[in-house]
Amino acid sequence: MGVGKSCLLHQFTDKKFMADCPHTIGVEFGTRIIEVAGQKIKLQIWDTAGQERFRAVTRSYYRGAAGALMVYDITRRSTYNHLSSWLTDTRNLTNPSTVIFLIGNKSDLDAQRDVTYEEAKQFADENGLMFVEASAKTGQNVEEAFLETAKKIYQSIQDGRLDLNAAESGVQHKPASPGRPLAAPPAARDNCAC
């Protein structure tokens, strides 16, 4: 059973809960244009297969991500326990400036909770990750997680930590058409722990 990465992506792009979301065998993506600080930004979000057997392959997709969302399932401790190894991969394969966001998904299943908020929050703080508990089912905090990630990426660009000119920054600048504001669409990637 997946931790809900694809459902989170659907919730973000379509504002729908896809309860019977097919298993992700590969890497899918969704896009949405959002506004950060008055700028239109196109997010391209990659949703990777989380199964262990694909891990070697999905590694190729980390490169050049401007942001990463790591997801675990609050009702299954095993998914939480895997986080550190996913985090190691993410850190090793992305830029130091890549924004990493931790999501504890399925917060609607509070009764079956297996990982406390405090414990995960501490893990996130220790590792310098942003963190929320969210539910792809109710939509709670989903928007926030993606938007916060985008905001953080945007800030990194503003204060020059993220070099737009580096081929692997994961961010593309589009030349503005006459009289239009600039748009810098970053790509975020959705990694997994399951």
Partner: peptide
């Protein structure tokens, strides 16, 4: 082997 079937402008599908 795992093959990566790439769709230009789209997703990748893993074939095992």
């Amino acid at each position: 082997d795992i093959l990566v079937l790439h769709l230009y402008g789209g997703k990748d599908i893993f074939i095992t």
